[in-house]
């Protein structure tokens, strides 16, 4: 796929490792191609995707899991593009996300007696609301409202922060320099 076509699709191009090769693509493209993840386990990736979609519908198709995985896989601290980098959380950020996703799964099981993936839409909405307000009993991760704030920003990034998302909102992007390459 040509870079111009990719820009039309996503506008946020990152480098992904696929079959040993580094490929430039948008998180949405990586999601559509089911490209392998580097850092997140399948279980935590599923949690991330379900939760992100519940917070910001469209985040799944926007490639939230591949966006998060790609950023958490950066070897250099300065290369991370997640908002968490300026919220005072020590590196590595993978520890923060992993602990939080595990706590989400435990909270789903503890409150509804079933895994996150089996929750109804209403239960998922209630769970997100409880996480956002620090109202989960026996929460075992980083402060849940803070995690919600951080992860909501990630979901919003892929849903509303790309050129494609601007176009959907009918906002002119007006780039000086188009985000067409990894930094």
């Amino acid at each position: 796929m040509k870079r111009r076509d990719l820009l039309k699709q996503g506008g946020l191009l990152l480098s992904f490792t696929v079959a040993g090769q580094i490929i430039l693509a948008s998180p949405a493209q990586a999601k559509a191609g089911a490209w392998p993840l580097q850092t997140l386990s399948p279980e935590l990736a599923q949690t991330a995707e379900i939760l992100a979609e519940a917070i910001a519908p469209g985040a799944r198709a926007g490639g939230i899991v591949h966006f998060l995985d790609q950023q958490l896989s950066q070897k250099n601290d300065t290369d991370c593009l997640l908002m968490i980098r300026y919220l005072g959380v020590p590196q590595p950020f993978t520890d923060f996300y992993s602990a939080a996703f595990k706590a989400v799964n435990l909270a789903a099981q503890g409150r509804y007696n079933k895994p996150l993936a089996k929750l109804s839409e209403e239960q998922l909405e209630e769970l997100v609301s409880l996480i956002a307000t620090d109202a989960i009993e026996h929460w075992q991760g980083p402060p849940s409202s803070f995690f919600y704030f951080v992860f909501r920003a990630d979901a919003v990034d892929v849903t509303y922060g790309t050129q494609a998302a601007f176009a959907e909102l009918n906002i002119p992007y007006m780039a000086h320099i188009t985000p067409d390459k990894p930094w």
Binding site: A54, I55, A56, P57, A153, V156, D157, Y160, G161, A165
Partner: peptide, 21 residues
């Protein structure tokens, strides 16, 4: 702009799900 700490979505962190769009 729509996203980031000082963005539109960031001004109402209480809004999520169906109400966000």
């Amino acid at each position: 702009k729509p996203n980031d700490l000082l963005g539109i979505a960031g001004s109402r962190p209480d809004i999520f799900g169906k109400k966000l769009k």
